[in-house]
Measured scan of single mutants.
Amino acid sequence: DVEPGKFYKGVVTRIEKYGASINLNEQVRGLLRPRDMISLRLENLNVGDEIIVQAIDVRPEKREIDFKYIP
């Protein structure tokens, strides 16, 4: 289970102007929005990149997770 405040290694699977889709595994994925990137710009991400993200909002009833990137 993903817990708010914990850090996870994820893989960038899609990049859109509203954010990047991050997969932690086949069943768990979430969104990294541009506003939640401290020192990383969306255009510097590539599909397949592995990054460390922090879960900031977990809504299991909607199967949604928001991530934050902290270098």
Rank of each mutant, 00 (worst) to 15 (best):
D1L: 14
D1E: 12
V2P: 05
E3Y: 12
P4K: 14
P4G: 05
G5F: 08
K6W: 06
F7R: 05
F7C: 13
V11I: 14
V11M: 09
V11N: 03
V12L: 02
V12F: 02
V12P: 01
V12H: 00
T13L: 05
T13W: 06
T13G: 05
R14F: 09
R14D: 05
K17A: 14
Y18W: 15
Y18R: 12
G19S: 06
G19L: 05
G19Y: 12
G19N: 03
A20H: 03
A20M: 05
A20G: 02
I22G: 01
N23Q: 15
N23G: 08
L24A: 01
N25Y: 08
N25V: 07
E26L: 11
E26G: 13
E26D: 14
E26V: 10
V28H: 08
V28T: 12
V28A: 05
R29I: 13
G30E: 02
L31C: 14
P34D: 06
R35Y: 07
R35L: 06
R35C: 09
D36T: 04
M37A: 06
M37H: 03
M37N: 07
M37E: 03
I38D: 10
I38G: 15
S39P: 15
S39T: 10
L40T: 07
L40S: 07
R41T: 14
R41S: 12
L42C: 07
L42V: 06
E43D: 11
E43N: 08
N44Y: 10
N44E: 15
L45W: 01
L45N: 00
N46T: 14
N46I: 10
V47W: 03
V47H: 01
G48P: 01
E50N: 08
I51R: 00
I51M: 03
I52L: 10
I52C: 14
I52K: 03
V53W: 02
V53S: 00
Q54T: 06
A55T: 05
A55F: 07
A55E: 02
D57T: 13
D57H: 14
D57S: 15
V58K: 04
V58D: 03
R59C: 07
R59P: 04
P60R: 09
P60Y: 11
E61N: 12
E61V: 08
R63H: 13
E64R: 10
I65D: 02
I65W: 11
I65Y: 09
D66Q: 10
F67P: 03
F67E: 03
F67G: 01
F67H: 03
K68A: 15
K68D: 03
K68F: 08
Y69L: 06
Y69A: 03
I70S: 09
I70T: 10
I70G: 06
I70R: 06
P71W: 08
P71I: 07
